[in-house]
Simulated scan of single mutants.
Amino acid sequence: MSKVNLDKLKTVVQSAEKPFKILITGVDPDSMGSAFALAALIEFLSGEVAGSIQVCYFGAIGHRQNKTIDNLYNLESMMMMVTDDEDFDNYHVCLVDSCTVADSRMGKHRNSFVPLIVVDHHRGIDFEVGDDQFCWIDEIGACATMLVELMQHYKFELDESDRFIYNMLAIGIYSDTDSLNSAGARDREAFNYVRGFVSEAEFVKFSQYTLPESYYMNLYYAIGRREQVGSKVLTNIGYIDPEEGDDLAMIANQLVRKDGVSMVVVWGIVGGKVRISVRNLDISISLPKWMKERFGDRAGAKMAPDGRAEGGGTIDMEFDKFWLCDDNKAEIIGIMTKKFRTLVFEPEKEAKS
């Protein structure tokens, strides 16, 4: 465990003068479980009622697994989507499963706040940490593992009405460690602890969720259009609906497992934007730097403890406002494909030019 004084969290929480807002920059089981666990722990440490602690998320709940969790526990009644005009000034902002304030997924809120509390298992913190903040970053398999350890440190157990959070922590650890295949000793210990509180039937629903027909059609489309140069793979899934946006990451996760592949770039057009998902296994490449050099400030990446990296980004082309019509969809895909070939496959010096 990294050398962080876990007792400091209590001091920071009890010294707070404003309500708490816990932000989820990328909705997945690990981030949702971690956010609700942190909210419950803050309530326990501060004595505040749950209403003074908000859980908020950027983007949409699109992935079928996330929707399953959301529907089962009615999470949308307990957390709110962040809007562009939302004001963070009157809150103490907390980050879980993220340690960057310049994350492209935050849109207009990028670099607009300094978090009071950060708990994350990725590298890449991009702000200075002061004495009045609690910041714990530890490169382990899941952020949920760290929340379990914090709860154990403070000898805190969830009330019966909040026991669903144990289920979310369990599936968060399970999913973020590739079904425990990449889990370390601490991840396994935390998982075994929360499984003692978990309904087996509910856990099966989370881990064996069904996938819609659209996912398989998009996967089929991506496989048919993939190009490989060396160990890099590039493909796209064309025009997709917003609720299919998570397919990009799922397809990237599948394709990077192919023999001889170290990097996968998958892109698609959603409305007027090009969305990108990248997976990289080559630890000699700094994916955060690689992404920003090619796709600008609205792109970024996180490094996993084992050197793997996951990246994503958005390019606002405003196709839907002027360029896009039924007669030129194929041409736009062709133009974007040529540009992506240059960005992904060209040598470093040419990609920067």
Rank of each mutant, 00 (worst) to 15 (best):
I283A: 14
D178K: 15
D320T: 09
Y57L: 00
N111L: 09
G107N: 03
K258L: 14
K289V: 14
D327L: 11
S46D: 05
I335W: 14
Y73C: 00
K349H: 13
I171E: 01
V229R: 14
V194S: 04
Y91H: 08
C143T: 08
F203H: 03
L45Q: 06
V27W: 00
F113Y: 09
H63N: 06
M106L: 03
S98Y: 02
V270R: 12
R163L: 10
V93E: 02
S284N: 12
S199Q: 03
K18T: 02
N280E: 11
S77Q: 02
A37C: 06
D30G: 00
R226Q: 11
V148C: 10
A201M: 07
V265Q: 06
I237W: 03
L219V: 06
V49L: 12
G107H: 02
K339H: 11
K67L: 00
E189S: 13
L287V: 07
Y166V: 01
V261K: 05
S161F: 09
G334P: 05
G62H: 00
Y209V: 10
K289L: 07
F134I: 04
F20N: 06
L219K: 12
T337G: 05
Y221R: 12
S31L: 04
S77H: 00
G312P: 02
N66Q: 00
N5C: 12
T210N: 09
T11S: 13
R195C: 15
P288F: 06
V256L: 07
D316H: 08
I53F: 00
R298M: 09
K349S: 12
Y220D: 15
V274M: 08
S52Y: 05
A301V: 10
E76A: 01
D103N: 13
G230N: 12
I223E: 15
T25S: 08
F88V: 05
A170P: 07
G313T: 07
I240F: 06
S231V: 10
I315Q: 08
N236D: 12
D259I: 09
S175Q: 07
S2T: 15
G272K: 02
C99K: 07
Y193F: 14
E293G: 03
L38M: 09
V101H: 07
D126L: 00
I171W: 03
S98P: 03
C56E: 00
R64F: 02
V49R: 13
D246A: 01
Q65N: 09
M317Y: 13
A330F: 10
A50C: 06
G62E: 00
D187V: 05
S262V: 08
Y154W: 08
S112Y: 04
T235L: 12
M168S: 01
V129C: 10
K258Q: 14
D306I: 05
L72Y: 00
K329T: 10
G300Q: 10
A16Y: 04
E350R: 14
M303Q: 15
D132R: 13
D70I: 00
G311N: 09
Y239S: 13
R298P: 02
M106G: 02
E160K: 11
K205Y: 14
E139Y: 11
I42Q: 07
D120S: 10
R123S: 15
G33M: 01
I117H: 07
N167M: 04
G33W: 02
N280H: 05
